[in-house]
């Protein structure tokens, strides 16, 4: 009996821990409220999740280097490397991902799931000069 109680308690504990650790899902369509060209706001969900661990499904844009701890997550596969082409510009709904370790890039057409701590607000990367509004820090990803 005592063993079973312990087992159930352990299971409940595990479930609780799992529930607590599970990052909140966040979709590209949930990032901004566009009420007009000059009135773009972060959604309540984004503002609430600032600093929390979230998971976002998207595509890895062509990175600058073969191995990197930094990439751009986009809603759709990116056709061109905007770093490399002066004629291209990034779409507005992108998330900059800072990995907790360097990683090999994946095919830009392969969907990936990224988990990381959401950071909201303007930031210029001092190393690359890249301007971003949304970032995932300490992130990791897997192919879907």
């Amino acid at each position: 009996m005592g063993a079973r109680v312990a087992q159930v308690a352990a299971l409940l504990l595990a479930l609780t821990v799992t529930a607590q650790a599970l990052p909140a899902p966040l979709g590209f369509s949930e990032l901004y409220v566009v009420q007009g060209v000059l009135d773009v706001r972060f959604t309540d969900k984004v503002r609430k999740l600032d600093g929390e661990t979230v998971r976002v499904k998207g595509f890895m844009a062509p990175p600058l280097k073969a191995e990197s701890d930094f990439f751009v997550l986009s809603k759709e596969p990116m056709m061109v490397c905007p770093f490399c082409s002066s004629a291209a510009s990034w779409p507005l709904d992108i998330i900059v991902v800072h990995l907790d370790a360097r990683a090999e890039p994946v095919d830009p057409a392969t969907p990936i799931m990224v988990e990381g701590r959401l950071e909201v607000g303007h930031w210029v990367d001092p190393k690359t000069g890249f301007v971003s509004q949304l970032r995932l820090r300490g992130a990791k990803f897997r192919e879907l």
């Binding site: 890895m60 062509p62 073969a66 596969p77 990116m78 056709m79 090999e104």
Partner: peptide, 11 residues
């Protein structure tokens, strides 16, 4: 959506 014919192979 607009055609997106090619993507860059990361490797």
């Amino acid at each position: 959506a607009t055609f997106n014919p090619a993507v860059q192979d990361p490797v």
